[in-house]
Amino acid sequence: MKKDIKNFKIQRLLKQHELYLFVVIVMYSLFITYLNPNFMSLENLFDLGKSSAVMGIMAIGVFVVLLSGGIDISFTAVAISGQYIAANFLIASGIDNIMLAFLISCSVGVVLGAINGFLISKFNIPTLIATLGTSSVFHGALLTIVGTKAINSAQLPDCFKAFGSFDVFTLTKPNGVYYGLSIFVIVFIIIAILTWLILKYTMLGRGIYAIGGDINSAIRSAFNIPKIQFFIYCYVGFLAGIAGVIHISLIRYGNPTYIVGDELSVIAAVVLGGTRITGGTGTIIGTIMGVAMITILNNSLILVGLSSYWHDLFVGLIIIISVSITSYQNKMSVGNIIFRR
């Protein structure tokens, strides 16, 4: 019984991963504010929220995959495919409707995600290798079929631009300039809540935790593993489709080589948020904070005068440091050497 109490304390401490992260974010923000007082302004925070939505939505997808003990690196290729196909369809058909864009992009996302899900659940291919392969196929096929022609601002249907500049409410600065909270942030929040609900209140969601916790127990508990895996990868595809449309609405420019290559930042955000690649452990709040941290870091690199060249280095370091901390804690808590590799 004593041992249980001791462990309980340790667990409570570990649970504070989010708390630590929160403290780091606040302290870092204060530091940046000290260098550049504009940082903490509501306007800049709204801006950060808007620009982090794409990464945030994809991060939630990656979070769900990692929770199940897998990994997906094809979601960027899925996002750009959805975006590019949707935008080009709208241009070609002349229909100027953002909902249609979402419908097309998400459908593409779900179909491509389903391919991942099929390969992983049916053929037991290691998730990294499967999604590495499909990533290459998806992106290569997109570039082969639709070419490398960019969609410039003039060609871009108005609905994207309108969606991109739509604020749910606006405020006025003393100098008369308007600023507001972008709809992107609302979409991101809705997705976060939806995902949280799925994970917490549906059998499917508990199944994802179950697979990540112990796949053999999940099999014995009669969970339908292939179905759950299939859902996971479709869901990631679906979220990537949304992220794709938001991305083009944000930058008002479409280029089929964009987004691909950002996998690293997204995965970094998720593992920074405390999600373990071994599955079963992690929270949505942690993931959101991870995304916030990476966004602030990117934003502040420029503020403190470091060029964006430093981006990859920081992302790499974040992955290494945050994973090292969780892995080392894990290694120590396992304690007995018998179970170590």
């Binding site: 209140y201 059998m203 508990s221």
Partner: peptide, 23 residues
């Protein structure tokens, strides 16, 4: 399931068996 609570470990199988969709 090591990553779940005692309560969930006890009850989850029943939920699965009863084909519950919502928890």
């Amino acid at each position: 399931f090591p990553n779940m609570t005692i309560a969930e470990n006890i009850s989850l199988n029943q939920m699965v068996e009863r084909k519950r969709k919502i928890i």
